[in-house]
Write a protein that binds this DNA or RNA. Structure first.
Length: 178
DNA sequence: ATAGCGATGTTCT
DNA sequence: GAACATCGCTATA
């Protein structure tokens, strides 16, 4: 088992990721506490990149729990997911935002002074230095890692952002820290 | 404060 | 060709 929190039903995994530290060692140490995620249920979810099966881009979604899936969004930004389904099951959690807790200077530099620092999927990857190079890496022992729970709080569910299929599923989860 | 729009890689029709 | 799990600049109010 990887860790009980990363493996299992994607709705549970998504909520379990909230409040955990996301630590990057790409070009220096930066870290956030995750505050916003979305669940995508692979073959069972018309909004998932894996709904129509494997393609070159989404290959890493099928590699098992704890795999990082990084893709280009709108040709410009990088977005990242943590896979939580077993091998061959492409359920994954899109990481959408966090609170900066370490290396804020480096994040500010990478973000070129823009705010917010790490809210929004494209902003989050930029702040942490995550690019397509990390696609397929492990969040357990790779350059970008999910670590222990840092913060508890209240979790709120709402519709996912920016999609046009399966819009009725309230699978976006946001954490309001205590 | 809100609205429109450009940038542009990968997938889908 | 069109759509897309986005973002930030610009224009108008």
């Amino acid at each position: 088992m990887i860790t009980p929190l990363l493996e299992g039903p994607v709705l549970e995994a998504a909520q379990a990721l909230l409040g955990r530290r996301l630590v990057s060692d790409v070009g220096g140490r930066t870290a956030v506490v995750l505050t916003e995620v979305e669940a995508y249920d692979g073959a069972n979810d018309p909004a998932s990149h894996a709904y129509r099966g494997m393609a070159p881009r989404n290959r890493s979604m099928f590699l098992g729990p704890g795999t990082l899936y990084v893709y280009r969004s709108y040709g410009i930004h990088w977005c990242m997911n943590v896979v939580c389904g077993p091998d061959g099951v492409a359920a994954a959690v899109l990481l959408r935002g966090g609170l900066a807790v370490e290396g804020e200077d480096l994040m500010t530099e990478r973000r070129m002074g823009r705010r917010p620092l790490a809210i929004g999927p494209g902003n989050l990857t930029q702040a942490l230095g995550v690019t397509g190079d990390l696609d397929g890496s492990s969040v357990i022992d790779g350059p970008l890692r999910v670590e222990g729970v840092a913060m508890g709080g209240r979790i709120e569910a709402s519709p996912r952002v920016g999609i046009s299929r399966a819009v009725d599923r309230p699978w976006r989860f946001a954490l309001t820290p205590d």
